[in-house]
Design a binder for these strands. Sequence first.
DNA 1: AAATGTGTTGACATTCAACTCAACTTTATG
DNA 2: CATAAAGTTGAGTTGAATGTCAACACATTT
Lengths: 114, 114
Amino acid sequence: METKTFGQTLKEIRRSKGVTQRQLATAVGVDFSYISKVENDRMPPPAADTIVKICEKLGVPSDELLAMTGKMPTPVKEAISENPAAQQFLREAQTMTLTDDEWGALTQQLKKLR
Amino acid sequence: METKTFGQTLKEIRRSKGVTQRQLATAVGVDFSYISKVENDRMPPPAADTIVKICEKLGVPSDELLAMTGKMPTPVKEAISENPAAQQFLREAQTMTLTDDEWGALTQQLKKLR
DNA sequence: AAATGTGTTGACATTCAACTCAACTTTATG
DNA sequence: CATAAAGTTGAGTTGAATGTCAACACATTT
């Protein structure tokens, strides 16, 4: 499964939206040359928060790009950091090395809670 | 609820085990002066992995100290980073701002999976 | 062709966490 | 008290993450 890189994916999305690197960079608050490097995979993907801003400007959900990087937005990270119960859960989950299906099942359980 | 600081807690545990700062530092692989600063809250708590080593040397579970810092050991972090399904779960969980009890319930579900 | 807009590249900058090192002070022991 | 062990403090270091800046190249429009 030849997976596209983060840079390739970003470049495609940006172009499909008819946005230039400079426009995107300005909206996001970084230098346009940085966007270029990221798109050509000359730099690692941006920080999670920057990715979120990029996706907002481009009008696409950030989930896909975030998932490619293995990073988590600050709010998510903070929510976990401040919550020992959540950490406990994660440590348990890690020792079990859950499958995707199992994570899915848990996500279902999650939704049932409300 | 007057919560003890990380440093205070560590100092107490270390002393209760009759271990000196230098012994602990050597076992963990850091400078003893660093231990001193951490214990006196002149520096933020060590990296998660260092905390784990400290707890191993002191013969106590790392859960409590880790929870105080809001940090996660490398293996846990990696497991999440590499797993989009886990990230999805966490983003959902964050938007819901779960209670401790709810996290507990999920941890129970988790155990049922095996 | 000239000007303008867009993209690429190399070198360098900034910030922060997580420490180390050397010097000093305090505490315990013979 | 003398000595050594234990602890404290200020200044500096290191590496990784996350970019910036200036210069250039290419592409498009006028």
